[in-house]
Simulated assay, not measured.
Amino acid sequence: MTYPPGDPGGYTSGEGQPTPPPQGYGPPGYRPPRSPWSSPLVIAAVAIGVIVVIGAALGAYWLTRGSGSEDSSTTAGASASTQTVTSTITGSGTGSAGPAGTSPTTQPTPTTSRPTPTVSGTDWQGFLSGPRCNAADDPAIVIGRTSRSQIVICQVGAQTGRWYYKGAAPQGTIEVGYPQKVGNSYVAQNGSVTYTVSPTALVITDGDDPPTTEPMLEYWTSS
């Protein structure tokens, strides 16, 4: 192949071969094309998009925080309401422990009503200085006083119909078990001696001897 004079084939390099022009550059005066991202409209659109995203994120945050606050407030209110109702119920219950600082109500122990005898110097168990019922819960059902004697007929606890007779006189004291009620009188038998107590007199009979009668000065009965 032959080449024109002065043209060694277009591939001289180093040893006289021409160097190819720089890649990516055009002829003199050529300006490379501008990137579409450098457009003011594109930049403005991107900025607006970023602002919208940030605003949405902030709005979601504040909405979530407000909802949590309302839930906490509602929960606290419900807890307080529940606590109040519980305290009220507890306070008005059966004596089980009420709210803190409140002592349970203690019902008073009912007391047994005791009669008040009309005989002077006596209480519901007999004479304060004289014959009295034996046990702490034995009530007197009859109390009498004559010029010589003091008489008490006592009931055995709550056993209706079970009685005992106690008497005191200058000669001494006596106790007789299980007198019987005859009409409005009580009859106690001690061997050959019989003591009959009525609202009007104490009559003492010993065998065939004439009875001794002591008129009642004071008499009281619970029946």
Rank of each mutant, 00 (worst) to 15 (best):
P22E: 09
I204D: 13
P108T: 07
A100C: 04
Y178G: 15
I153R: 03
T109P: 05
M216A: 15
R148E: 07
Q150G: 08
R132M: 10
K181P: 04
S35D: 15
T64A: 13
L63F: 09
Q125P: 01
W62D: 08
V50C: 15
G167Q: 06
G68N: 12
R145V: 05
P110M: 05
S149V: 01
V193E: 11
P27S: 12
P211R: 05
A45P: 02
L202H: 01
Q189A: 10
S13L: 11
A97G: 09
I43A: 15
L217R: 06
I43L: 14
S67L: 13
T212E: 10
E175D: 10
N184M: 08
T12Y: 07
G29C: 05
Y61K: 13
A56H: 08
G6Y: 00
P28E: 13
A169M: 08
D123Y: 03
G14D: 15
G172Y: 00
I141M: 08
V119M: 01
Y178I: 06
T2D: 11
T75K: 07
Q83I: 06
Y61V: 06
Y61F: 13
P131Y: 03
T213V: 14
P21D: 07
R145K: 10
Q83G: 11
V197A: 04
P33E: 02
G191R: 01
S35L: 05
G24I: 00
P131T: 04
D138I: 02
G77Y: 06
W163H: 05
G183Q: 06
Q23C: 08
G9T: 02
D7R: 10
G9D: 04
T196V: 00
A168I: 03
R132D: 09
A188L: 09
D7N: 13
S79M: 05
V53D: 02
Q23R: 05
P170L: 05
D138G: 04
P8L: 14
T102D: 09
N134A: 15
S73C: 02
T116D: 15
S103A: 11
V193I: 11
T109A: 12
Y165F: 13
T90D: 13
T213F: 07
G10V: 00
T2R: 12
G77D: 14
S39E: 14
A60Y: 08
G26K: 02
S147I: 09
S103D: 10
Q83D: 09
A97E: 11
Y61P: 09
I48K: 15
T111I: 08
A47C: 03
V156Y: 14
P18Y: 00
S223W: 02
T90S: 12
A188K: 07
E214R: 05
G183Y: 04
A97I: 01
S223A: 08
S103R: 15
Y25P: 08
Q180E: 10
P108W: 04
K166H: 07
G66D: 14
D206L: 10
G98E: 02
E70S: 14
